[in-house]
Design a protein around this nucleic acid. Structure first.
Length: 491
RNA sequence: CGGGGUGUAGCGCAGUUGGUAGCGCGCUACGUUCGGGACGUAGAGGCCGGGCGUUCGAGUCGCCCCACCCCGACCA
């Protein structure tokens, strides 16, 4: 393992790249824009996935699976939807290869051209609503509350591990409802599920709000989102929940007979979070020593490092350590006993720090003698010695404390980097010098948002649900505004 | 898709006026070490991104590809 990563101060984006690779989370692959998620990174994703899946099921959803390929004709049925995704679709045109007649390896068999080209899904609304048409006849068939865990492809020009890759993993919920109210309620419910997950499990504080028309999902009437602030002052959209109205029902002719015997179009929502959450998790908490993981999502919560110089000593320590490991595991804690004999303790300390293991316990001959252990926490790097019989309580409390502490730290950071301004000059200065969220008045038009984006690279991240009514003037045009919205430069 | 950069051992890099390939880390074996990234000795590992050309001879010079990285535009 390499010894160091670039510091955040020196080069934040290089720091991120180094961290992802050195913490063993992911690698660039042989395929442009596509990443290999390594076992340790995938273990974190699995924790994220398991928890979210539980939360989806607790709110009445079930999982299903729809095809990777979507007929091109489906895609073009919803006009704004196709427009939003057309520029980044991978297209399958042939279904067979053959040996090159000139003997130069293998080539596409031109005789095997598909009659209708297939799009590799960038999202599944179209194939799903085409399917729902067959499933829905009566109000009694509603609601349909389905989620799928899948991979999708968006052919991005410029990619970064986890934050933007050509292929990524995500979940997409697609629900169908009899009424607008119910669909709106679902949209709100799910953005709240995302927010709760981000704050309670990822320890990342998020703003909840609506997207402006510019930032809205292609094909949606309304997009709700959660927005997090990264340590470099840039915003990261971390989850979205869309109210799709009857757009897809109309495009795919999905109607149901109401209680009153009237044919009506179905109301829809869709919502998703992706492996991008990994990016949020990494950037929100980590430091120049490597990853810092919230205990609730850490694949390894506690690592035990034995310190010894003779084989017999390791034997003795192992006999001592295994019961401690068991005792912690009995409390539901994930423990790794790092008894590799080809690395020195110092190396192991550094390695587990790089990988963000929340708690480290070191035990050596001195501890055996004194009946103590040394416990170090990753978030603050503090080390303390405790009597061995207090280990379980100390560790249980410490894990909670770390979870809480990194959330508080991230919240404090966000509060310190949230500014209110009514001056466009100051607005630009904040963006250039400090970054962060800026609360400012906006006249509500796309044109103004475009103008601000062009001039400052900042976009409206969201219109917070809890934004107080406040009369003011648009920061760019001076036109009247009744609340402040959140601007930031974003990933 | 524009601008810049880089392709030489698993990784990071050096390689002079063209003469047949090197360093560090890592890896393997053995020994000594082990409370914050150990050390010694001995090894293994290369179609120098690809093609075409110039030349007696190309990692090195020329042309053409390809890939990746960084910065913009676009996007979750």
């Amino acid at each position: 393992m390499a010894k160091e990563i670039t510091s955040r101060e020196e080069n934040y984006s290089q720091w991120y790249n180094d961290l992802v690779v050195k913490a063993d989370l992911a690698d660039n692959s042989a395929v442009r824009g596509c990443m290999v998620i390594k076992p340790y990174g995938f273990a974190i994703w699995e924790k994220i996935k398991d928890q979210l899946d539980k939360m989806f099921k607790d709110t009445g959803h079930v999982n299903a699976y729809f095809p990777l390929f979507i007929p091109k004709s489906f895609f073009s049925k919803e006009a704004s939807h196709v427009e939003g995704f057309a520029k980044e679709c991978a297209v399958v045109t042939h279904y067979r290869l053959k040996n090159d007649p000139n003997g130069k390896g293998i080539v596409v068999d031109e005789d095997a051209k598909l009659e209708e080209e297939l799009i590799v899904r960038p999202t599944s609304e179209t194939i799903i609503w085409n399917t729902y048409r067959n499933w829905i006849q009566s109000y009694r068939d509603l609601p349909i509350l389905i989620n799928q865990w899948a991979n999708v492809v968006r052919w991005e020009m410029r990619t970064r591990l986890f934050l933007r890759t050509a292929e990524f993993l995500w979940q997409e919920g697609h629900t169908a409802h009899a009424t607008q109210e119910e669909a709106l309620e679902e949209t709100m419910k799910m953005v709240n599920v995302y927010a709760d997950f981000a704050e309670q499990y990822m320890a990342v504080p998020v703003l909840r709000g609506s997207k402006s028309a510019n930032e809205r999902f292609a094909g949606a009437i309304e997009t709700y989102c959660i927005e997090a602030l990264m340590q470099d002052g840039k915003a990261l959209q971390s989850g979205t929940s869309h109210f799709l109205g009857q757009n897809f029902a109309k495009a795919f002719d999905v109607k149901f007979t109401s209680k009153e015997g009237v044919q009506e179009y179905v109301w829809a929502t869709s919502w998703g979070v992706s492996t991008r959450l990994m990016g949020a998790l990494i950037m929100a908490h980590s430091d120049d020593n490597g990853l810092v993981l919230p205990p609730k999502l850490a694949p390894i919560q506690v690592v035990i490092v034995p310190i010894y110089n003779k084989a017999e000593q390791l034997q003795l320590l192992t006999e001592h350590i295994l019961p401690i490991k068991k005792q912690l595991e009995a409390k539901g804690i994930t423990v790794k006993f790092d008894d590799r004999d080809n690395y020195k303790p110092g190396f192991k300390f550094a390695e587990h720090e790089m990988r963000g293991v929340p708690v480290r316990i070191a035990i050596g001959p001195r501890d055996l003698e004194n009946k103590t252990v040394e416990i170090a926490r990753r978030d603050t790097l503090e080390k303390k010695v405790y009597p061995v019989d207090q280990i379980t309580d100390v560790v249980v409390n410490l894990l909670d404390e770390i979870q809480q502490n990194i959330f508080n730290k991230a919240l404090k950071f966000r509060e310190e980097h949230t500014y209110k301004t009514d001056s466009y000059e100051e607005f630009k200065e904040i963006l250039d010098t400090k970054g962060g969220f800026i609360l400012a008045h906006w006249d509500g038009t796309s044109e103004t948002e475009d103008l601000i984006k062009e001039e400052t690279k900042a976009t409206i991240r969201c219109i917070p649900f809890d934004a107080p009514e406040e009369a003011g003037k648009c920061i760019r045009t001076g036109k009247p505004s009744n609340k402040r919205v959140v601007f930031a430069r974003a990933y």
